[in-house]
Amino acid sequence: MEENKNFTVSVYTENNIGILNRLSAIFLKRHINIESMTVSKSEIEHVHRFTFVVIVPETLIRKVVLQLEKQIEVIGAYYHTEDEIIYHETALFKISSEHLYDDKIQDKMKFRRAHIISITERWFVIEASGLKEDIDNMYEKLKPFGLLQFVRSGRIAITKPKMAISEILAEIN
């Protein structure tokens, strides 16, 4: 069995309704769990960018990316390994204000890209960002204080290799 790896899939699409359904259907058909997903504008006007993270064998992701790319409204689809990308995730932690002046919490935050972004009498919110592991670590450390809420964003990633979307658009038009 080929080993599972983390892949970041970047899909450039037209900005039309229903594309998310079409893309997720391809993962669904192959019984692949999407670990995280982010949709945003891209560097090109009217072109949207989906970023998926999946954990699968490379031969599988290669086929999936071709099937994503085949969709009419997909301009280009790519997959990258962890060392081919620069990526980032963000998380928010809501914690009871009784811990606000707890030295232990202050300690945990010192070493991380973490800071408090909101404080009320009853609760406060810590924002942390970084690699997946950084946030995993932060989660483990803050959990003992009782998390009132926890939420983490999908991965956003910039790839080191070029994705030639403008060239593809220029070629067809």
Partner: peptide, 13 residues
């Protein structure tokens, strides 16, 4: 109404 046949779709090769 006016009709023009489609000859290309920019995201589709």
């Amino acid at each position: 109404y006016s009709y023009k046949k489609c000859e290309k779709v920019r995201s589709y090769k």
